[in-house]
């Protein structure tokens, strides 16, 4: 009973919430991530990539964000949400980077992230692929089993370990809504004792190499298979 009450409280939405608009900002977010990533090149300094990302988002009317724009290069991909990057990191020819953006389009919040590699380092390439694969493995458990947030991230942690990665549970899913979701619930999905509803949560996967200084990140809205084809 407590979980039911808690779920209705934690999954409240604002007055202009709409499924269509949430899906629209999700699409815009994913498109922006790939557009920004396509313009990130070896030799760039991370701070310049962040500025470029903000220019691109501004041009699309999405500069406003409920969190800052993160483009992380190399060893900075191990940094957790909100942690300052080491300054002056230059993207190498054989390197890794990820994006994490949380744009607000008009009144709706987007949030997404993805990881990209610039060379042929097999471990880096595998980490980017595994972050996406783990995202979908967790999402499928949500879809097929109806697991709670806690169960989903217990599974994610175990599965990440089996894949050879360490899961950063500081980035463990959160609410999303018509702006601002933070006024409703600003906590992690990983602590909720109910099965999260679609459209109003994002699932985050941040894995790190157990020995080397890089990681990979993937984040998208919690939705069923039909939205990932």
């Amino acid at each position: 009973m407590n979980d039911v009450i808690e779920q209705s409280d934690l999954e409240k939405v604002g007055s202009v919430f709409s499924k269509e608009q949430m899906l629209a900002i999700r699409d815009k977010t994913r498109a922006a991530i790939h557009l920004i990533a396509s313009k990130v090149k070896p030799g760039m300094v991370e701070e310049d990539a962040v500025a470029m990302a903000k220019d691109i988002l501004a041009a699309q009317g999405m500069l406003r964000g409920w969190h800052d724009v993160y483009v992380r290069f190399g060893a900075n991909t191990t940094k957790t949400f909100g942690a300052p990057s080491d300054p002056g990191v230059v993207l190498g020819e054989n390197d890794i980077f990820f994006l994490d953006i949380g744009p607000i389009y008009q009144q709706w919040e987007g949030d997404g992230g993805d990881t990209f590699v610039t060379g042929t380092d097999p471990a880096m390439a595998r980490s980017a692929e595994d972050a996406r694969a783990l995202f979908h493995a967790v999402r499928k458990k949500w879809q097929s089993e109806g697991w709670t947030g806690r169960q989903l991230y217990d599974f994610a942690e175990s599965a990440a370990r089996d894949m050879g990665w360490e899961l950063n549970l500081d980035l463990s899913g959160h609410r999303i809504s018509d702006f601002p979701h933070a006024a409703i619930y600003d906590g992690p999905m990983a602590t909720v004792g109910f099965c999260p509803s679609p459209l109003v949560w994002v699932l985050e996967i941040h894995i790190r190499h157990p020995a080397r200084r890089f990681g990979a990140f993937f984040e998208d809205m919690l939705l069923d298979d039909a939205y990932f084809r």
């Binding site: 409920w66 800052d68 607000i104």
Partner: peptide, 8 residues
């Protein structure tokens, strides 16, 4: 919301 980072 963004903590003073000129984002929100």
């Amino acid at each position: 919301i963004c903590g003073g980072r000129a984002s929100c």
